[in-house]
Design a protein around this nucleic acid. Structure first.
Lengths: 170, 170
DNA sequence: CTGTTATTGTCCGGTACGGTGACAGTTACT
DNA sequence: AGTAACTGTCACCGTACCGGACAATAACAG
């Protein structure tokens, strides 16, 4: 595994923070998707549901803006969530061309479980670190994330297929 | 039943290390691909070229094993690199059915530039951190990466697009 | 009030990519 | 020799992304 540990000449990939971030980020996304799969949702669904919790009745356009994605992607996302009966497209009270998106009761039951999954996942990923190190890591990552210019809580890869159908076979 | 979820005040996504890792990892991959694009190669090409530097004359199968990908992916990767005249498929001295992969002179000229791009990229990403914090971050990330079980230096998303030149316009 | 323009949400088609199965050439084993 | 195993390649297929176009509705000018 640690074959290419050539010290000296050029820094190996595993010594670059950028590579580690990309590698870990990918792994985290993969495993989180696998953990979430039994609940019938993908990570992007989870993010959307969490956002919906605080923005009941918003239009699809508002949601798309908030998550930094295109309206078309929101259509697909909501289609999937609606099919799982986690959201409802109701009539918007003041704008009849828009939909007011609401969480269903099922979603309110699902969300705590999903959050628990996320907590377990986080705990597993951070196993090697103690509490202090975890807090410090989060603080550092937040500083880095802030510097990137990405809005807080907005995942730039939300348009991606969200790593679906990757059964926890590995 | 268990109303343990305080509505609206749960830990936001931006407070989870897993989300930050995924978000940052994606952003890093994106921007690195953009930075590497002018050189005519993608991040996975870069990783392969770096590996080839130390394993001249290996077969495609050996390379695929080392990078943790399938032989078929290696075919495509080498096709692209060969088209850019960065690698050569020579006759394997002892096994006539296999190819011996070698870097070209152009690749030896390109690699230092690519490494420089990677250094600049790393420096930009880590701008908010001082030298001590950077070293500590790398150390922590290495511990986490080791715990995931992924081989060091092997990017689990090597099969993914990761290659597309996403304009940093957004 | 009427007509024009902008917005919302949806659908459709082209395009590219990842993943799978089969295939020729070569080697290794009996 | 003859057969099994391996390497590298190709062709196929299902799927996801991206663009434009569209109906319905709203907002606004005159």
């Amino acid at each position: 595994m640690f074959d290419d540990s050539a010290p000296g000449t050029d820094r190996p990939l595993a010594g670059r923070a950028t590579f580690l971030l990309s590698q870990l980020g990918f792994h985290v996304a993969q495993t989180f998707a696998a953990r979430l799969a039994p609940l019938g949702i993908a990570p992007n669904h989870f993010g959307l549901l969490m956002h919906l919790e605080r923005s009941e009745g918003n239009t699809q356009q508002q949601l798309a803006d908030a998550l930094g994605i295109h309206r078309k992607v929101m259509v697909g996302l909501l289609d999937e969530l609606e099919q799982r009966e986690l959201v409802e497209r109701r009539r918007h009270p003041s704008d009849r061309r828009a939909h007011a998106i609401h969480l269903t009761e099922a979603a309110r039951h699902l969300l705590p479980r999903a959050r628990q999954v996320a907590d377990q996942h986080e705990d597993e990923i951070l196993t090697p670190l103690d509490a202090g190190e975890r807090a410090e890591l989060v603080a550092v990552l937040q500083r880095l994330a802030e510097h990137t210019g990405n809005a807080a809580g907005v995942h730039p890869g939300l348009h991606q297929p969200a790593t679906r159908s990757r059964q926890p076979a590995d």
